[in-house]
């Protein structure tokens, strides 16, 4: 269907008016160009350089996670100096128990053995954590009800934590076998 409104009256145009129309386009183009530049500059400022290095995340975050300080030195570090304890542990069932399972985090002691001394341990708490009887513990694991077993006497009165089995002469003296 044809548009049937009144005929549009066009004003008389001079050459100046034609140039003025192009000027509108140039201004629009300039605004868009400024917008684009602003976008590129802002994007460069906001998006970290390593973003997208490995995927849709900041690649440098991996190295930052790896830079966290260490608290547990690891038993191989302990064994470097405490060779006497290693030999002692080899004779008993605690051979597979890592040092820091009982002694706690000691990376600072490993870094500077002279100035950082490991704290004294409370065997009544530590031994019971593993060896207190609990029906959910596997049957192969040695368990005792501490109240019946020792009656409050500290575990290391009889047991040597690094080699927990009581020696024969001691068992003969106390009349108890374990």
């Amino acid at each position: 269907m044809r548009f049937s409104g009144p005929a549009i009256q066009t004003p008389a145009h001079g050459k100046n008016h034609v140039f003025k129309d192009i000027e509108h386009l140039i201004r629009l183009a300039a605004v868009m160009a400024i917008g684009l530049i602003a976008f590129i500059v802002l994007r460069a400022a906001v998006v970290p350089r390593s973003f997208g290095q490995y995927g849709h995340y900041r690649g440098a975050a991996i190295a930052e996670a790896a830079a966290h300080p260490i608290s547990y030195a690891g038993h191989t570090v302990c064994e470097g100096c405490h060779t006497d304890v290693v030999e002692q542990k080899k004779l008993g069932k605690h051979v597979g128990v890592p040092c820091e399972a009982c002694h706690g985090p000691l990376a600072k002691h490993a870094d500077d053995p002279a100035s950082v001394t490991p704290p004294k341990l409370d065997t009544a708490v530590l031994c019971a954590r593993c060896h207190e009887a609990n029906s959910a513990k596997p049957k192969w694991f040695p368990q005792v009800v501490t109240a019946d077993h020792s009656g409050g006497v500290a575990c290391d009165t009889c047991h040597q934590p690094h080699k927990p089995r009581i020696e024969d002469e001691k068992t003969a003296a106390s009349g108890r076998k374990n």
């Binding site: 790896a66 300080p69 890592p98 399972a101 985090p105």
Partner: peptide
Amino acid sequence: CTLCYHRITKGLTTACCEVCPTG
């Protein structure tokens, strides 16, 4: 959990595995 990323990248095991008395 980061799987102790700061430890495993240095050749150590995680803190939880390090102290587990029964493996």
